[in-house]
Amino acid sequence: MRFTPFDASEFLDDEEAIAEYLAAALADPDPDLFVAALGDVAKARGMRQIAREAGVGRESLYKALTPGSKLRYETIRKVMDVLGVKLTVASRV
C-alpha cells in the first residue's frame, strides 16, 4: 500500500478554514507549528504572489516559513496582511 504525504494547503480553500487552521496552530505551544501553518496557507494562496505582495523574495519567504527558522514579526505581519488575517489577543478568563 502506498501513501502520499498529507498537504494541508490542498484543503485551505476559504477564509474560514484558513482562520481556523491558523488559530489552532497558534494555540499550540510549539512556535514551529504556527510557522508551518502560515507556510501552508501561503502555499494554498500562491507563494509567488504572497511574496510579491508582502515585498519579500519568493525564496526568502520559503526559507522564512520553514519550521525552525527565526521568523521575524515584521515578516509574519506582512504575510498575514496579504493573506487578510490578523492576530488578536484575548483573556483566558
Rank of each mutant, 00 (worst) to 15 (best):
R72I: 01
G84E: 05
V82F: 03
V82T: 05
G68L: 02
R72L: 06
E53S: 13
L83M: 07
S69H: 10
M80C: 08
E53W: 09
E59S: 15
D28V: 14
Q49V: 15
L83K: 07
A27K: 04
D40C: 03
A36D: 11
D28L: 07
E74S: 13
A37E: 02
M80R: 02
V56H: 09
K70P: 04
L65E: 07
E59R: 13
S69E: 10
E10P: 00
E16G: 00
D13W: 12
F34D: 05
A8H: 04
A51G: 08
M47T: 15
A8E: 10
R52S: 12
L38T: 04
D14G: 02
I50R: 00
S91K: 11
A51W: 13
L12Y: 10
K86E: 09
V82G: 00
Y62T: 09
M80E: 09
K43G: 12
D40Y: 05
A37Y: 07
E53T: 12
D28N: 14
K86A: 06
Q49I: 14
K78S: 15
A51I: 15
R45W: 10
T88S: 10
D81C: 03
S91R: 12
A23C: 02
R77P: 00
R48F: 10
S91P: 02
E10I: 04
T66F: 00
A37P: 01
S9A: 14
K43L: 15
T4Q: 10
A25C: 01
D81G: 13
E20K: 14
R92N: 12
P29Y: 13
G68E: 09
D30L: 02
V93P: 08
K63H: 14
E10C: 09
V89W: 14
M80S: 03
V79T: 03
L87V: 08
G84A: 01
E74V: 08
D13S: 08
S69Y: 11
I18K: 01
K43R: 15
A37R: 04
R52G: 07
P67R: 09
V41G: 02
V89G: 05
E20V: 10
M47C: 06
K70H: 13
L38Q: 03
Q49L: 08
V35D: 03
L87T: 06
R77N: 10
E53D: 15
K86L: 02
L33D: 05
A25G: 02
R45F: 04
P67N: 08
D81R: 12
F11L: 09
G46R: 04
D40G: 03
K78P: 07
L26W: 10
A8R: 09
P5C: 02
D32N: 15
E20M: 08
A54V: 11
V35E: 02
Y62S: 06
A8W: 02
A24V: 08
R77C: 00
D7N: 10
I50C: 01
R2M: 07
A54F: 09
D13C: 01
V82D: 01
T75D: 09
M1V: 13
